[in-house]
């Protein structure tokens, strides 16, 4: 059976000099990150060059993605959240396009590596903490003190709030990472069942029909997950940013 983990291996494509002990060679992961970025920038710039009053299909897609993210921010973090619009838009498009590129058979899924999702989640976390303190000063701590809580259970509540706040980047990153990783492993496992069973002659072909149907269904599901996880990451980002903008519950 083909190794379902093999698809996540990082391979060096263009070896570059090390910076200190760290290796910054162009790997397959780096190539797919570059492709993701180039596709997003290229698409958004090319589709809007005509600045048509009545948009064509591609310009419509660009405008829809703009309005989709803008509405998501405004409905969760209010109008002030639009300050973070470029960040949220970059996160959403980067994760979405990386996830979708990963659906191409043989392609590498950038977001299936926890270091990437952790880095993105920590970027959001750092933004929330820095902007929260910069804008609200010590009022930012009101985030941990819900109003209307009796004083004798307040220490407990504050402790829970602090814990949940600190664990945010963990859940934020692991959710995306685990979804992409598990989805691709499942697809690979069921797909290798097809190959394995069809090696057993006619009866094996019949048996292979079941995993084939499953792989087809799972592929559709994975496309949904690819979009959904990008959206979930985005909306959680907006909710966390909302805490930084309006720390009082």
């Amino acid at each position: 059976m083909a190794d379902p983990i093999h698809q996540f291996e990082i391979k060096t494509l263009v070896p570059l000099a090390n910076i200190g002990p760290a290796d910054i060679s162009i790997t397959n992961s780096a190539a797919f990150m570059i492709a993701t970025t180039v596709i997003i920038i290229g698409f958004l710039l090319l589709s809007t060059t005509s600045r048509a009053m009545v948009p064509g299909r591609l310009q419509s897609v660009a405008e829809m993605s703009y309005e989709f993210v803008a509405n998501t921010i405004q409905s969760t973090a209010g109008r002030e959240g639009m300050r973070f619009f470029p960040l949220v838009f970059s996160l959403f498009t980067f994760i979405l396009v990386a996830n979708l590129i990963g659906m191409i058979p043989g392609a590498f899924t950038v977001t299936s590596h926890i270091i990437i999702t952790v880095a993105l989640a920590l970027l959001v976390f750092a933004t929330v903490v820095i902007y929260g303190f910069w804008k609200n000063g010590f009022k930012f701590f009101k985030l941990f003190v819900p109003s209307g809580v009796p004083i004798y259970i307040l220490p407990l509540i504050v402790m829970i709030e602090v814990m949940s706040f600190l664990s945010r980047p963990v859940s934020h990153s692991v959710r995306l990472f685990a979804n992409m990783l598990a989805g691709h492993i499942t697809l690979k496992v069921f797909a290798s069942f097809i190959v394995m069973l069809s090696g057993f002659g006619f009866a094996g072909w019949l048996g292979a029909a079941l995993p084939l149907a499953l792989v087809v269904a799972l592929t559709a599901l994975e496309f949904l997950v690819a979009f959904l996880q990008a959206y979930v990451f985005t909306i959680l980002t907006c909710i966390y940013l909302n805490d930084a903008i309006h720390p009082g519950h």
Partner: peptide, 30 residues
């Protein structure tokens, strides 16, 4: 290290292009 390096390079490029070019352009069109 390589993943973080390239994530940094690509994401900063993406952010700058979105913030300075693409989003203002789409916003002005709308």
């Amino acid at each position: 290290p390589t993943q973080l390096t390239w994530l940094g390079i690509t994401f900063i490029l993406l952010y700058v292009m979105m913030a300075k070019v693409a989003l203002p352009r789409i916003g002005s069109i709308l």
